[in-house]
Write a protein that binds this DNA or RNA. Structure first.
Lengths: 210, 210
DNA sequence: GGCGTTGCTTGACACTGTGTCAATTGACAG
DNA sequence: CTGTCAATTGACACAGTGTCAAGCAACGCC
C-alpha cells in the first residue's frame, strides 16, 4: 500500500489526534487507535513501539501541523519588553486550546510513564524559552524591577501560562478564552512589569464568562 | 484479631499514606498496599471495594488526622479582608505539602476514574469555599475593586492556590516554600486587593531558592 | 467442651489491556 | 517468477483489577 493517500504512520497519528480531540475523550487504548486508523492493532505496533510513543508522536505531528513557531513569531518581533510579553502571552494562550486534547492525554500518563514525562518536559522546556526571552526583553529595557531575579520571573510566567492553569480557569471554572487571556496578561504585567493598571480592569469581565 | 492495636481498616490507610508519602512514590497497586499493611490482598478488598476507595479513604483519614479545619481557623478570625486573605493563603499554602503525596496519587487517577475525580472535586470545592470567604471579606470592607466580580476573583484565587501551581513552582522549579508563599500572597494581594506594594518585593528572594 | 460468628487467608478465576511472536497474505518491482 | 515489504491473523505471556468459594483460627457464649 505504498500509494495510499496518507501513509499508515501518518494515518495513525491523525486518527489518534481525532480521538483525543473529542470533547469527552478518555485515554485511547491501542485497539481504539487501531480501529480509528482502519488498521490492525499489530500494525500500530509496527510503527510505534508503545502507546506512549503514539501519543508523543501525535503531539510532535500536531506541533508541526500547527506550526507553533509561526504562531510565536509575532512575540519575537515585538519592540518593547511589555509588548513582547503581551504578544507571547496572547500567542501561547491561544495555542493551548489547540493542543489541549493531546496535552490532557500526555499529562494523564506522565505520572506513570517516564518516557511521556520526558517528552512533555521537553515540550514545556521549549515554551519556557519563550518565557525566558520575554523576561529578558523586560530586563533589556529596564522594565523588570532590578531586584527581581529573571529566572524566578521566568518560573512565575511559565507557571502562569501552564496548561494546568488554563485548564483550571477555562475548563473547570468555565471562563471564556478572552477572559482567561486578559487575566493572565494582567497578572503577568503586574508581576513582571509593575504595570498595575493592567490588573485594575482585569476581573471586570464577568459578562464574558460562560 | 479484634484487639490488634490499630484496626485493619485503619492500618491499611496508614500503610497507604506511608507508601504515598515516599518521595518517589509510584501509584501503589492493591498488592503493594496489602503487603505494606501486613495483610492479604483480599483483606484490603474486604474493607475497600476498589483501589480508588482506598485512596479516597486515605485522603479523608489524612484530613482528619491533620485537622485541616483547625489549620484554617486563623484565617476565619482575621479582622480585615486583606488579613484574612493573607492568613488563608498562608494556611492553605502550608497545608499543601502535607497532602501532596496523596494528592498526587489522586490526581494521577482523576483522568481515568470518575469516582476519584468526584472525591477530589469535593475536596477542592471545600477549599474553594475558603477562597470565596476570603474574597467576601474583601468585598465587605470595600477592598475588592467594585467592578470586580467576586466569583471570578474566587476562581482566580482558587487557581493560584491549586496544588498544580504549588507543584509547578516548588517541585518542578525548585522553589523554596517561603518563596512560594510570598509570591502567591503577593499575586493574590495585587490582583484582589490592589495592594501593588506586596508584589514589588515578591520576586526579590532569589537567595531563598533551592 | 462444643457452637457459631467474625476477620482474615488461600488459591483460583475472569477480564482488560499491553506488548511480543510467528505464520500468512497480497501487492508491487525487477 | 521471485523476493520484498506492509499488513493481517491469531496466539501468547504478563501485570493488574476485581470476584468467588473454601478454609482456618480466635473469640464469646451457652
Amino acid at each position: 500500500m505504498s500509494s495510499t493517500s496518507p501513509e499508515t504512520p501518518t494515518r495513525i497519528l491523525q486518527a489518534t489526534l481525532a480521538l483525543l480531540e473529542q470533547p469527552d475523550a478518555k485515554l485511547p487504548t491501542m485497539s481504539d487507535i487501531a480501529r480509528a486508523s482502519g488498521v490492525s492493532r499489530q500494525a500500530v505496533y509496527l510503527h510505534y513501539p508503545s502507546r506512549t510513543d503514539v501519543l508523543v508522536a501525535a503531539t510532535r505531528y500536531q506541533d508541526q501541523s500547527n506550526d507553533v513557531n509561526a504562531a510565536l513569531a509575532p512575540s519575537r518581533s515585538a519592540r518593547s519588553g511589555t509588548e513582547r510579553l503581551d504578544a507571547f502571552v496572547t500567542a501561547w494562550g491561544n495555542y493551548i486550546p489547540k493542543i489541549y486534547g493531546v496535552a490532557r492525554a500526555i499529562l494523564a500518563v506522565v505520572d506513570t510513564d517516564a518516557e511521556a514525562a520526558a517528552a512533555w518536559n521537553t515540550r514545556m522546556a521549549d515554551m519556557r524559552e519563550g518565557c525566558a526571552a520575554a523576561v529578558q526583553a523586560l530586563v533589556d529595557d529596564g522594565t523588570l524591577p532590578v531586584q527581581t531575579d529573571p529566572e524566578q520571573a521566568t518560573d512565575l510566567l511559565w507557571t502562569l501560562l501552564s496548561v494546568r492553569t488554563w485548564e483550571n480557569l477555562t475548563q473547570t471554572c468555565g471562563w471564556d478564552q478572552a477572559c482567561y487571556l486578559d487575566t493572565v496578561r494582567g497578572l503577568a504585567l503586574a508581576a513582571l512589569a509593575q504595570d498595575t493598571g493592567a490588573l485594575t480592569d482585569v476581573l471586570a469581565h464577568s459578562k464574558d464568562r460562560a
